[in-house]
Every structure is written in structure tokens, then in C-alpha cells.
Amino acid sequence: MVISLTAIAVVALIYVFIFSEALSFGSNVGFLHLVTDESWNPTNGKYNIIPIVVGTLLTTTLAMFIAGPVGLASAILGLEFRTYRRAIYRRCLEVLGGIPSVVIGLWGLTTIVPLVLKIRAPGASLLAGGIVLSLMVIPTIALVSLSSFESVPEIDIKTGHALGFSRWSVVWRIIVPQSRKGIATGIILGIGRAIGETMVVLMVCGNVIQVPGTIFDPVRTLTANIALEMAYALDDHRSALFATAAVLLIFVTIFVIISDRFSSEIQ
């Protein structure tokens, strides 16, 4: 009883700490500065986070555009395997999802960034970030979708076959549509993960604070911003970072609530 209170206590503590620091930013500087200042330059008292928020939204969107189709396709591909082969396939996706993000970031830095650089400088960019970030999300989408494919009742699949559907049509017309909710859950979980991911974007996005003109321009995300500046941030700057963390926390809490709704509807 007392012990499981720690779960509640910790959540409360996190909220209290993050938000109290964030609120002290509100009282000392004012939240309006987050959107009205001309730039993000905390050492000179400028706190415009809009380009950074845009950076987060763009990397996440791009990553989801890649991860959505690829994840779904991998889940469908998984249906082609049976029994132990499917288990191995699953395990491979789990391994991909289990590779530490710093390692994926390292790989992106040494492999994807130079490839992007071949197209256009500087290489470390929104595009590189989107590609590498999608790798972090694909396993989530693929595994959750595959599970929901598997929970489509056997009888519906048999009916499809009995109606003379080809195997492909059974997958495409029966299994996938019936799993819409599962796929949506996977995507929501994926978005939550992409928004919160730090190391990958920190290592491959270039970290320049700007609203990018093209996908070849570097960007900085909320998480990367915290990681980069926390080490030397003091006073108002520090509370500004907590304010951005509060923004992240709110995003994520909303996603948790939405995906909870979804998964409880599925059950």
C-alpha cells in the first residue's frame, strides 16, 4: 500500500517540480515572452520557443509520414510468416526497437547524415532527423498493428476465404479494416514516442534554432534544446527550460489519455 503510493507520489512530484519551475518562469519573466520575443536567446533574456516547437512538430510529422506506411507494411509482411517464423520476425522488430537511441543516433550521424549531405549541405537536417526518428517509431507501429491483426477473429478470415477472396484481398479487405483501432493506437503511441525522443534528434538534426525553409535545413527540437542547454542554464534560463518540459509533459499526457480511450474501446 505505502509502496504503491510511490507511483502516485512520483507522478505528483514530477508534475510539482516541473510545473513549479515553469510557473516561476511565468512570474519572473512571463509566459507571453515564449511566443512574442523575437528570438530564443536566453542569455539576453529572449525566450521565443516557436521555432523550436515548430522543429518538434516537423520532425515528428516527417517521421510519422515515413513510419506509418513502413510500419503498417511490416505488420502486413509479418502476416506472411507463420508460427515460429513469425516469432522470429517479431523478435527482430523488438530488437530494432530495443537498440539504444544513442546508438541509433550514432548510426544516423555516421550513415544517414552523410547520405543527405550528398544531396544537399549541411546533412544534419530535418530530413535526416525524420528518417532516423522514424526508425525509433516503426517497431512500435509494426508490433502493435501486427498484434491487432492477429486478434481478428478466425471466423471472419475463414468467411473471406469461403467467399473466394484471394489471400491478398483477405488481408486488405478484412484484416486491415477490422484492425483500424489497433493501427491507430500504434500510431498514437508512436507520435508520443517521437515527440519525446531526445538523443536521435539531438545527434542528427543540426540543432539550429530556426523555422526551416526546406527539409534540408537543420532544426532544433524541444527535447534537444533541453539537453543542449540544461548543462549551463541558470535562473530564468533554467526555468525557461522547465517551461518547455512542461509543454512536452502536457503533450504527452494528452496522448496518454487519448490512447487510453482507444485501447479501452478496443477491449
Binding site: 514530477i14 519525446g196 533541453i226 527550460l241 512536452l248 509533459l249 496518454v256 487510453d260
Partner: peptide, 15 residues
């Protein structure tokens, strides 16, 4: 609480 905790980004845990 655990559900929320599970979704918190690791950088926020760091803070």
C-alpha cells in the same frame, strides 16, 4: 499514474 509515467519523455525524467 503509471500510464502517465510511462509516457513521460526521458529528458523530462532527467530534468
Amino acid at each position: 499514474s503509471l500510464d502517465i509515467l510511462a509516457g513521460v519523455p526521458s529528458i523530462v525524467f532527467g530534468l
